[in-house]
């Protein structure tokens, strides 16, 4: 999508504000910009988000194998 397409999708947000949002998203690596002729085309890159999700899962639950190994070490001692 071009910045114009995106701005059209958010009619209540000003064009400069859309540009600022895009810049922040690009800096965060969530949006990739490719120049096509005179225009920039923006695409979403969900990989960094997947990384965040994975970290969340890994921390939310214990590392199950590690927990069982700990239990084994203590019970078999």
């Amino acid at each position: 999508m071009t910045a114009g397409d995106l701005a059209a999708a958010f009619p209540t947000i000003s064009r400069p504000a859309v540009s600022r949002h895009l810049r922040v998203l690009r800096e965060a690596g969530l949006v990739v910009a490719i120049q096509a002729g005179r225009e920039w085309r923006y695409t979403l890159d969900p990989a960094p988000l997947a990384e965040v999700t994975q970290q969340w899962f890994a921390k939310f639950a214990p590392l199950w194998e590690e927990a069982l190994a700990n239990l084994r070490r203590r019970a078999e001692a």
Binding site: A58, F60, A61, P62, A67, N70, L71, R73
Partner: peptide, 11 residues
């Protein structure tokens, strides 16, 4: 104390 010694891994 004993529970967290083995279960408290990663969190």
């Amino acid at each position: 104390e004993r529970m967290s010694a083995w279960y408290g891994t990663g969190h």
